[in-house]
Design a binder for these strands. Sequence first.
DNA 1: ATCATTTTTGCAACCGGTTGCAAAAATGAT
DNA 2: ATCATTTTTGCAACCGGTTGCAAAAATGAT
Lengths: 332, 332
Amino acid sequence: MAVTLKDVAERAGVSRSAVSRTFTEGASVSLKTRRKVERAAAELGYHPNALASSLTTGRTKLIGLISNNFHNPIFLEVFDRFTRGLQDRGLRPLLVNLTDETDPENSVRLLRQYSVDGVIVASSTLSPAFARAFRDAGMPVVHSFGRFASAPEVHVVGIDNIACGRMAAETLIARGYTRVAFLGGPESATSTQDRFRGFTEVVAAHPEIEASHSFASAYSFDAGRVEMTKQLMTDRAEAYFCGDDVLSIGALSAVQSAGLSCPGDVGIIGLNDMEMARWENIALTTIRQPIPEIVESSIDLVVAMLTDPGRIPETRLFGCRIVERETLRPLP
Amino acid sequence: MAVTLKDVAERAGVSRSAVSRTFTEGASVSLKTRRKVERAAAELGYHPNALASSLTTGRTKLIGLISNNFHNPIFLEVFDRFTRGLQDRGLRPLLVNLTDETDPENSVRLLRQYSVDGVIVASSTLSPAFARAFRDAGMPVVHSFGRFASAPEVHVVGIDNIACGRMAAETLIARGYTRVAFLGGPESATSTQDRFRGFTEVVAAHPEIEASHSFASAYSFDAGRVEMTKQLMTDRAEAYFCGDDVLSIGALSAVQSAGLSCPGDVGIIGLNDMEMARWENIALTTIRQPIPEIVESSIDLVVAMLTDPGRIPETRLFGCRIVERETLRPLP
DNA sequence: ATCATTTTTGCAACCGGTTGCAAAAATGAT
DNA sequence: ATCATTTTTGCAACCGGTTGCAAAAATGAT
């Protein structure tokens, strides 16, 4: 049905090798046969079968894009940038949804079956065991939005969550809040742990600051709303560093539903700076995570691994900055 | 490097065919050799190479998932459901991002190169020419969120946008609004055209109702905000049917920024019922699009096409319903 | 035990490509 | 023209699987 190498070869009156060579970069073909082949290919509407060629070249140009974050709006941007970035480099994302998956084995098998050239794990909540399992299976791996490690087992690209925790605490203190709180995502996520740690470090260094903490059940609007509602019923803090923006917006809505105002009664600072954060009816003060840089850098790393699989795992951390909007009181 | 059929065959002391047969459903192998092969495979850690087998079977189990909607939060849910639904059926989504792409040719080539078994076009704004081009290239195609057609050229699964337009107009009229308006997405999108048409039909049948219309430059928050701001500066309507939820939220924020209230001064009804619509600090009254059903049905169709490529194109339309929240005044 | 029938097995060819190697053709120096 | 050198070409084997077909083995009836 589809037109193959052989058809083109016959039509052009050359060997199959000649046809193959005109379609592979840098192969030895004379201008004359190249012209003949190109002509025949065009007439027949021939396009090489990438999967067949992958069999001998050992390259599929398929990159497994693994995630379990299909509820955090920021990941739509993440997917957008990953897919475009990969396409621009001639690579194809094979999207794998790992929601509710706890065992890496299935994913490893799947990625093996399709002989992906590399794997990008895009998640801050997926267990590092996944990235490790992919590496152990011999695939180049980059963990985006993963945890910092001084001797990383796989490439990690992301932000310094500890530094973000510190930045949040320092910001709250600078604004004159004296009773502050950390309202984190699920405690099991390394991102939560690290943000909490940085936050705690700073408040611990300020004996005059009273700090408390709690963890929401997920990085979601509902979980944020539930957790903040609980807070409001006991003795609430003056300002909260919420685990991320979705959580923050849930918390914000709880504050408003309780008839309180933000930042009047409660201050909130989030993390991510997702699109909705700047919506005027939300106007969340938050810490911006540089998604474009993280994605680009992740792709660069996975591409580098393609030619140098032995490359030593490296951690790339990007700086974050406060985006001032309207949920924190101004500097005194 | 990877362990192949041959390795297993040697270890098990059988032919390569025998190994192949134990791994293909319904092939003729005795229990005895099957055991031997399974044992050897387990010891060696063998897993069949899906791409190699696709060469002879003609099936890759790869489904092209095509979209250009990487800015509408509702598509995160769409991707989540598509990827999971496909995975559950043993199919793999090859994600293709067609943002800013106007010519189907590249996409056709790409999908051909990877010999996808089928294509799902998930977009309400992508030109129907894409779905057509894929079909012409001989691939089973389903256009999700596509336009209704009585004699469709490809399978279409979605909602009846004309009916939604009618429903919106009828709702506004029932609430006693007499000056209503359509604030659509880009005029080039068939979804916009159809929603507008249904809306117009109904208001035209009510001579006492005064109707106007305008189109935002995109289905985005900013475009909605810009367009509504314009409206507020001239003589605004009492209530707006906005093209979709993101547009609605942009419009809502414009209303609030102008110091007006919703639904007090301006009524708004959206379309989609995306997650943010129910966030308490947004509380958008909207028309719910049944995403889960659309996605499931799309997958069912593409799977059906796998076994029956000649299947006659069919349109499947799902009903929508009003989700009452707080941006429209109640029934009188 | 014998023989007809059914099941299982391996051979060999194939899917659509790539590539090392030797032969053929082209090039260029004399 | 001749010959050494370089470039181009096709053959044949291979990548990792599947499958039709004939032969071999197993089964079951007598």
